[in-house]
């Protein structure tokens, strides 16, 4: 069965610092053969949306379960163990060979919107600092109103008996502090807001 769907999809590398480091556009052309669940995704690999016509390569993708519990993904003859860690709507967190990757699947339209939002966030005057790991706040070294520069230690977080310094990532003024000494925080809890100067 060939399913020809004109809708294009883009895999967008969430962790990439560049706007698009790798974009994959699937023509969503599936080929199912009834014997084994073999799928062919027609992929166009390109550096940006405009250059999408440049590369047009076909990847043969297969999945198999091993007896010892791994999911192997084979692409054009190469096999790696893969794992989907999390999937929230169009966002994916995956492991290939134990290395983590984050992708969001976008249509050309949502991609444009995403790029716009990213650009806006970059210019946003307030930077929110979140807890990178769950832990206990050992010490808060700044007060609201303090002027800090990138690299300054703002607070110390203790997790698994290790003390971790939380540093400022921009130059600015402390707008608000959401935690105090002794507080337990979960991952991604808001710690401090810095106003860009």
């Amino acid at each position: 069965m060939i399913n020809n769907n004109p809708k294009k999809l883009i895999a967008f590398d969430i962790n990439s610092t560049k706007e698009i480091e790798l974009s994959l556009i699937a023509d969503n052309k599936y080929i199912f053969t009834p014997k084994k669940d073999e799928k062919v995704i027609d992929i166009k690999l390109s550096g940006s949306l405009e250059e999408q016509e440049d590369v047009n390569q076909e990847y043969q993708v297969e999945f198999s379960q091993t007896d010892d519990g791994f999911t192997m993904m084979t692409v054009n003859g190469t096999s790696y163990p893969v794992e989907i860690l999390a999937n929230r709507q169009n966002e994916y967190e995956l492991l290939v060979n134990g290395v983590g990757y984050s992708f969001s699947i976008e249509t050309p339209f949502s991609m444009q919107r995403k790029k716009m939002l990213l650009a806006q966030a970059k210019e946003s005057p307030v930077m929110q600092l979140k807890a990178p790991i769950p832990g206990t706040v050992v010490e808060v070294l700044v007060q609201a109103g303090d002027v800090v520069k990138s690299g300054d230690t703002l607070l110390v977080l203790e997790a698994m008996k290790m003390q971790n310094a939380i540093l400022a990532n921009i130059k600015g003024r402390i707008r608000k502090i959401y935690v105090k000494q002794g507080d337990s925080v979960s991952q991604r809890d808001l710690l401090i807001e810095i106003e860009r100067e």
Partner: peptide
Amino acid sequence: EELFAALLSINNY
């Protein structure tokens, strides 16, 4: 590897 990850997410989606 990154290509694998992108393909895996597209496939699952």
